[in-house]
Simulated assay, not measured.
Amino acid sequence: MRPISKRHLLHAAWFLLAAVGTPAIAQAWPTKPVRMIVPVGAGSAPDVIARIVGEKLATTWGQGVVVDNRPGAGGIPGMSGLARSAPDGYTIGFVPAAMGTITPLVFKNPQFNPDHDLAPAVTVGISPLMLVVPATSGIQSMADLAKHAKAHPGKVNFAAPQLNSLPHLAGEMVSKAGGMGMFTVPYRTPPEAVAAVLAGDAALTVDGVPSLLPHMKSGRLRAIGVTSAQRLPGIDVPTVAETYPGYEAIGWFQIIVPAGTPSAIVERINADVNRITASPEVIARLSELGIYPRQDSVAAARAFFVQQQGAMKHLVNELGVQPQ
């Protein structure tokens, strides 16, 4: 018989407590500061969003919310740290889409299993991506891109921001959907990929809306598609799905907790975050970062995670991405 680990005993103890008195647990919680693990570096866009939400949660809870940045290796230090934390509500994670659903697929030893170790509590918002080309390019649409790529097989460079990132996979997905056979050039960071397109070294790249808008407004880049299922408010750019039905590749952010966290605490987190992201002030601040708030229940947040997880598994398998 395999010995029972200390972690599983801890989870079992919390499940027992939850069964006995979850309302009391949630009513008393939190009585001390809450740590929010963010698996990216300080100053990055996800970190900024996490701090906006954390600041509001601290006010709501009357306790500090301490942001704990743990960047590197596809978010593994942060995600594995979250997975190993006590399921007591005093450690939560602010998780971007890639770390939750792509990292477990593209690393041989991610050191955490999202199905067993983690539990989504609430979706903070979604973050669509945009495909851009140089404004001097003759490519005006997704159809133009496909036509150009097919006329120059293997010669249309796609500047991929970070290997196996969501923008990278989103671009590969476009190439596959249109039978374009684009030549992928991986860059270390999204700004480097954008710089390559601006310099004319690449035909296109994919990135988040906020980082691309200034270049669009300056007239240096042209957007030819957004990766969400619907067009974005205030941005007159067709969706990729209008050319390739069924296409969708979105970023998102969720508050995720260690598996076994008492359900009453998870429900409390869900309700408080939903109230925060429904406030006009937070909606305005997030919109500046290209984030569209999304209020959902705990069950809906978990269903959304599973749906996105399935989509990423399908995509990684379709593209033949090998774990590193």
Rank of each mutant, 00 (worst) to 15 (best):
A135G: 04
H152K: 08
P161W: 06
T123M: 15
L204P: 01
G208A: 11
M182G: 02
A177V: 05
P110F: 13
A119E: 14
P128L: 10
G125R: 13
D207T: 08
P153R: 06
V206L: 12
A202L: 01
N109K: 15
H152Q: 13
H152P: 02
N157M: 10
A151D: 11
A160Q: 07
I126S: 14
P153N: 10
F158E: 01
V133Y: 00
P114Q: 06
A160W: 00
K155M: 07
A143F: 10
S175T: 12
V156K: 00
T189W: 04
T184R: 14
V124G: 08
A193L: 06
Q162H: 08
P128R: 03
I126P: 03
L163C: 05
I139H: 00
N164K: 14
L204Y: 11
S137Y: 00
A203L: 06
P186L: 13
N109V: 14
V156N: 00
V132L: 06
V122Q: 04
V156G: 01
A121I: 12
P191T: 06
F107C: 04
P190S: 09
V209E: 09
F107N: 13
F183K: 15
L169W: 04
A195G: 14
A196N: 02
D144F: 00
G138K: 13
P161Y: 04
V122H: 05
P186W: 01
A193S: 10
S211Y: 03
T205V: 00
A170L: 06
N109T: 15
G219D: 08
F112L: 08
I102K: 04
H116E: 12
K155L: 08
N157P: 02
A177I: 04
G200V: 07
K176W: 07
L129C: 05
H152A: 10
A121T: 09
T184Q: 06
G138L: 04
D207L: 07
F107S: 12
D117G: 08
M216G: 15
G154R: 09
D117Y: 06
N164S: 14
V185P: 04
S218I: 06
P167R: 07
G125Y: 12
M180N: 00
P191K: 07
D115A: 13
Y187H: 15
A119P: 03
T103D: 07
E192A: 15
G181Y: 05
P210Q: 07
V185E: 07
A177D: 14
A146C: 11
G179A: 11
G179K: 10
V206Y: 01
L129V: 03
P128N: 09
F183L: 12
K155P: 02
P120N: 10
G208W: 08
S141H: 00
I126W: 11
S127I: 11
I126L: 10
P114L: 05
G181M: 03
K176M: 12
P186M: 12
G171I: 01
H215S: 12
S211P: 04
G178A: 15
T123H: 08
A193K: 03
L105P: 06
T136I: 05
G200I: 07
